Computed example of a mutant assay.
Amino acid sequence: MLALARPVRYLALCLLAVSSLAVGRDLDQDEALELRHRGIIVPLERLLEAALGRYPGARLLEAELEQEHGRYEYEVEILTPQGVVREIKFDAATGALLKDEEDD
């Protein structure tokens, strides 16, 4: 019984490590500012204009910078004039649109 506990515990730790990498992490404003100054990410303002331009009259609800899947991503949530919340993701390094979908 004791011999089985060690492999199970090891497997649980491995799964926890992998799942934490998949989830990613939010960056604080100091980290974001440093990345912007170093030219690693594009300015958030540019991508906010692009997100709001997709839905004229929309309002910004939230914007955050995340490190996910080995890259930096901006996640922007907006409220359209029709009352629909949309989640829009951009590659923070290139500004490329990654996702635009209705948020649950």
Rank of each mutant, 00 (worst) to 15 (best):
G53E: 10
M1I: 02
P56A: 01
R71G: 12
A92W: 01
D30L: 13
L21P: 14
I78K: 01
G57W: 03
Y10W: 11
R6G: 04
L27V: 13
E49T: 07
A93V: 04
E73T: 12
R6L: 12
R36N: 11
L60P: 07
D91A: 06
L47H: 02
L48H: 07
L33I: 15
R86N: 09
I78Q: 04
L15M: 04
I78C: 09
A92Y: 07
L4Y: 06
V18P: 12
A22S: 14
L21W: 08
G95I: 09
I40W: 12
Y74C: 01
D103C: 11
G83W: 00
E64S: 07
E66Q: 13
P56N: 00
E49V: 10
L2D: 15
S19G: 01
R36Q: 13
H37A: 13
A17K: 09
L13F: 11
R6D: 10
L79S: 10
R36L: 15
T80M: 00
E102G: 07
F90A: 06
I41G: 02
G24D: 07
G95V: 00
G70Q: 09
L33V: 14
E102F: 13
E62Q: 14
Q29G: 05
V23T: 15
A92F: 03
A50H: 08
A51R: 00
V42H: 02
P43Y: 03
L79C: 08
P56Y: 04
S19H: 04
A50N: 03
L61H: 12
R25M: 11
A58K: 06
K99E: 05
V8G: 08
P81E: 10
L52T: 15
E87C: 09
E75V: 04
V8N: 05
A5F: 06
I88W: 00
L60T: 00
A63F: 13
D26N: 11
L35Q: 00
D30G: 11
E31Y: 06
E31H: 02
P43C: 00
L98Q: 02
A51D: 08
R59H: 11
V42N: 09
M1D: 14
L33W: 01
D26R: 07
G83P: 00
E102Y: 09
E62K: 10
G24T: 01
G53P: 04
A58S: 08
D103Q: 11
V84M: 12
R6T: 13
P81S: 04
A22I: 09
P7I: 05
L65A: 06
E45N: 03
R54G: 08
E75A: 09
L65G: 08
